[in-house]
Design a protein around this nucleic acid. Structure first.
Lengths: 210, 210
DNA sequence: GGTCGAACTTGTCAATGCCAAGTTCGTGAC
DNA sequence: GTCACGAACTTGGCATTGACAAGTTCGACC
């Protein structure tokens, strides 16, 4: 058993994600992680100033992973810019449902109140991903007359709100749908679909909703 | 100075809202409130089993106040069901911005994980308010072909996401708009507007966006 | 080999939540 | 008026956690 753990920072983040997934963020403590990993109670202090710093790093990683997921979702959606834009939101909802620890860290109030450069950059990259999706969709005829920053705010709100509500058991049960995946698909259809018919209804789009 | 405070439960809730507004939820502790109110450290225990119970009560009150605000907003919007529906969302954003303590309690992860009847009922009443708004708007021709539960999920996600993002300084700065009120108005226009033109564009509605 | 700094350990203290026993006081029954 | 009871409180003790500081280990560099 060497004196130095050798990879404590990564181990702390991994164990933290496990604890959050199993017991929620309120169960997370630096001493608890230290115990779990077999190091002294103050050892995590060498890597993270406090719990908030650890959570912020998880959130930063969560933003990065979700941006990757959104890009992958958009790539899988093909060439149509509006379909790619829709895939951004759908992928974020899926990310939230499949990665509760990272998603909870992203949205945790203590992280929200933590204003460090790395986190701000990660959040900005997330917003940029949606902004690019908005711009391409708009260039393709989606909401052609709207202010792009308003479209962006709407998009971020819808993606974030849908991800929260469709990944949180205390909310997901409020809606009558038995299949959360199908509900997420339908909600994202609403986010993008009406926009497409703002000027002229398209028969293809009409069939999609039915 | 009588032995009994006489109205400790209410005083605790009021002081908690003040502390949250000024220092954030992470600064809230039962001992801190007890000190602030000049009672013994264990006295709050007679009214709230723990911090989570206190926060849940604040969240319940927050849901109630926000439902009142939404109803008032809808009443002020006049007779048009779609305008009234839009006013629900707009009023919720405004509520979030004007009542940060209650809004933060509503969304706090520990409250989310707290599953008691009073909170569930309050949340259900909030959802019902939106559901009624959706039903009336749909009956008036908004998204006539859509599944009402999908509309509801979309509405809750949009309202909640917009309220979060437009009330939280760490997000609000991400959008280029200088005026958050105008941005909130525009975002809500996007939520409702396209729906109205799903079948036929209406000249009045077109002018609203411009 | 010596120095330095990062990664750790050990120990202490304060704040918080939690629990239990004790005190105060208002209400209702007799 | 007295007594019993229960709700609202006080006091005290304990465990856990974060924060801090001094001490130890160990790898890199000169």
């Amino acid at each position: 058993m060497p004196y130095h753990h050798g990879n404590l920072r990564t181990a702390l983040l991994e164990r933290a994600a496990e604890v959050i997934a199993k017991h929620g963020i309120e169960a997370l403590s630096l001493r608890g992680l230290a115990r779990d990993l077999g190091v002294s109670h103050a050892a995590p202090g060498a890597h993270f100033a406090d719990r908030k710093a650890l959570l912020s790093e998880l959130a930063r990683e969560g933003f990065r992973l979700s941006v990757d997921a959104m890009h992958a979702g958009a790539a899988a959606a093909g060439r149509d810019p509006v379909a790619r834009y829709r895939a951004l939101g759908r992928s974020y909802v899926q990310f939230a449902r499949e990665n509760p620890s990272y998603f909870r860290a992203i949205n945790h109030p203590e992280v929200r109140a933590h204003d460090d450069d790395a986190l701000r950059e990660a959040r900005a990259a997330w917003v940029t991903t949606l902004r690019e999706g908005v711009q391409e969709a708009q260039a393709a005829g989606w909401h052609p007359e709207a202010d792009p920053e308003v479209l962006l705010a709407f998009s971020c709100a819808a993606a974030s709100g849908a991800a929260e509500m469709l990944s949180d058991p205390s909310w997901a049960g409020a809606f009558g749908a038995a299949d959360v995946d199908a509900l997420a698909d339908a909600v994202l259809d609403l986010v993008v679909h009406r926009s497409r018919t703002s000027v002229l209804p398209l028969p293809d789009d009409e069939r999609k909703v039915s």
